[in-house]
């Protein structure tokens, strides 16, 4: 053991000494001078993942470096990936892909950074729809919002989703006592994909709140019927063959209007204390990427709205979503910390 320890120590010292000499005199050049990493806090194939890869692909062309996208998953609301970005140097070489969900990190984990500590680049998002499985709808006669609102035995209906995020908050606005007070049963899944599937199968769930992009093909196939737009305004769901007018949820539950709009948005963020010139360069690359025709086509395929927001505009949007989401979760008893102690204003 001694021999080995000696060997190791000698080698460490020798190599470090040699390389310390080399390390002298490296000048700083304009950003970006090397490859950028984008950390995606959610799994492959999800909305955040697909959008981040698309946006980063376009931005890399303008920045003329390659951007490596990596999924660092786990924790509540993507907290592991986000905290990894925060713990990296704030120099613009590590970006965090994000959706609205990581805004709940300060109330669900010991991490204290809120939207004040980040600068956002919001690319786009897809509208939230309340959908019903077509078999259930036909059987119970609840294929429109009015009929569902009038349906007597709501307690027998099950609504699928992921606990903790945006869709959970929206579904809770409908079902919880203090809000819409429809006594639906909440069934939780690991992601919106499995939740939608459980609704399509029709055994475990009858309703689901999800983004229009994700339910698009099931709507076209006639397996799901969109019955409400989770927003104060109506929405027209266009598919190649037909267009469906989807009424606003506030038509039957007007009381929740003050928590809306609470919409999906996808993009990326960097810590606020990143150097200003770096942020400016990222902003210009982001603008170029959003104007890319390929990006526009991608967004329309996903039935998404392009927001193209950065700077103050994006931060305001993030703060509004943060306040809504965190306070709704807190009211539902799904947080460890209160939004007040993290300095998040009440909506």
């Amino acid at each position: 053991m001694n021999r080995m320890m000696k060997c190791t120590m000698m080698l460490v010292i020798a190599v470090l000494a040699v390389s310390a000499v080399f390390a002298e005199g490296q000048a700083e050049v304009a950003y970006p001078e090397r490859d950028i990493t984008c950390i995606i806090p959610f799994g492959q194939g999800g909305g955040t993942d697909v959008w981040a890869r698309k946006v980063m692909g376009s931005m890399a062309k303008d920045l003329k470096v390659s951007i490596t996208t990596t999924n660092v998953t786990g924790g509540s609301a993507g907290s592991i990936g986000i905290s990894q970005v925060w713990n990296s140097p704030h120099d613009g070489y590590v970006l965090a892909a994000t959706s609205e969900t990581p805004l709940t990190i300060p109330v669900t984990t010991p991490i204290t950074q809120t939207s004040k500590d980040w600068d956002y680049f919001i690319a786009g998002g897809s509208p939230g729809l309340l959908c019903v499985n077509s078999v259930t709808a036909a059987k119970l006669g609840i294929d429109t919002l009015d009929k569902l609102a009038a349906y007597g035995n709501k307690a027998s209906l099950k609504i699928a989703g992921t606990t903790g995020g945006l869709w959970f908050a929206l579904a809770s606005l409908v079902s919880e006592k203090n809000y819409g007070n429809w006594p639906l049963t909440w069934v939780s899944y690991a992601g919106s994909g499995p939740a939608i599937l459980a609704t399509v199968g029709g055994i475990d769930a009858d309703l689901v709140v999800a983004s229009a992009g994700e339910v698009k093909d099931y709507v076209r196939a006639g397996q799901l019927i969109p019955i409400a737009h989770m927003s104060p305004d109506g929405y027209t769901f266009k598919t190649d063959a037909k267009s469906i007018d989807v009424p606003a949820i506030t038509k039957v539950i007007p009381g929740i209007a003050k928590y809306l709009p609470l919409q999906q948005w996808l993009g990326f963020k960097v810590p606020s204390d990143t150097p200003a010139d770096v942020k400016a360069r990222l902003t210009s690359a982001f603008k170029v990427a959003m104007a890319d025709p390929d990006m526009v086509k991608f967004a329309s395929d996903q039935i998404a709205v392009i927001y193209n927001k950065s700077g103050v505009e994006a931060k305001t949007m993030a703060q509004k979503s943060e306040s809504n989401l965190c306070w709704i979760l807190f009211d539902l008893g799904k947080t460890t910390y209160s939004p007040a102690e993290r300095g998040i204003a009440k909506p």
Binding site: T73, G74, G75, S76, S79, I80, S83, T108, T109, P110, I111, T162, T163, G164, F168, S188, Y189, A190, K334, T336
Partner: peptide, 19 residues
């Protein structure tokens, strides 16, 4: 992290374990 309830499980406040 528990998917059903949204609660952290057996992580003892450790961010790594919560994943």
């Amino acid at each position: 992290y528990d998917v059903i309830s949204g609660a952290p499980r057996f992580d003892f406040g450790n961010i790594n374990l919560s994943g």
